[in-house]
Design a protein around this nucleic acid. Structure first.
Lengths: 155, 155
DNA sequence: CCGATGTCAGCGAGACTGAAATCA
DNA sequence: CTGATTTCAGTCGCGCTGACATCG
């Protein structure tokens, strides 16, 4: 059944940027989730693993702030990752209340595999963009995080 | 307490694009939700209203496909919007099983107000990007949807 | 019969708020 | 005492799968 009219007539209304970004967010999230699902990771868990790799020793509260979630939500994520043996936590000697996370060997291997899977999604998504255009796209995205992040400079 | 080290030393590792996009997705979602929360809309409801405005007469199944959600999930959204008087639905005379949605006056007013709120988020996010750079950014985003959308040409 | 649509039901992962304990 | 961190609960909006009826 072809009840949906085609857009080949050029009647596309001028799309609003919020709308387009929301759509990108939706479909990209689905595709990334599909890509890392074979490895048993959710997108939040994947992001958290990536953060721990890039900055070893982050505490649960620091991970929560960088992910824009509450410490309680991040605690669930971290506990799950620890239970699966992807990260380990050690108490900070100076602040015994704080546990700092780092990747295990298994976590590093899993992360490498997930990076490979998400890279394929990236490549497909960026089809048609020249290398210099990709660089500008990356710079624009980094600017978005910077401006929306409430002054948080670190990524 | 300043346990979080600054990144002013230039020790930032090369961020992966998936990671940056996932972060943009996270923070942008939060900011957009905050922006439209005063009007009682979720991000999905806002997207759905926008789609109905741009293409009047879409059915529930069509809206679901465009939003990358199941028809059941979209049905909840549509029923909520209808109950709040933001859209109305009328049975298609040729296909009595299909209900086609259109905005009410209240829905149009609400959408205009939400557009204003999300535009402010956009402007803040795009601070530092020249107009031509914004255009290229928009084109890149549209390309992302096109490549990831599985052949769905309409936005 | 078949495919698409709309709708009702139950379910589960995810993130939230509240509250309490620990530590500098 | 104050503030930050961690963690144990309870809660909820959201999207999912399953099932069924309807329509062309």
């Amino acid at each position: 059944m072809r009840t949906e009219q085609s857009s080949t007539t050029g009647d596309d209304p001028p799309a609003r940027l919020s709308y387009v970004i929301a759509r990108v967010e939706r479909v990209l999230r689905r595709r990334l989730e599909e890509a890392i699902e074979p490895y048993g990771l959710t997108l939040t868990q994947y992001m958290t693993l990536s953060m721990v790799r890039d900055r070893r020793g982050l505490s649960n509260a620091q991970l929560a702030r960088r992910s824009f979630v509450t410490p309680q939500s991040m605690n669930d994520v971290v506990c799950t990752l620890e239970r699966r043996g992807l990260i380990r936590r050690e108490v900070d000697p100076a602040h015994r209340r704080i546990s700092r996370a780092e990747l295990t060997e298994s976590g590093r291997d899993t992360l490498i595999a997930c990076d490979k899977a998400t890279s394929e999604v990236e490549d497909r998504m960026l089809t048609g963009l020249a290398p210099d255009e990709r660089d500008r796209f990356m710079v624009a995205l980094l600017g978005c995080v910077r401006e929306l992040g409430g002054g948080l400079r670190t990524i």
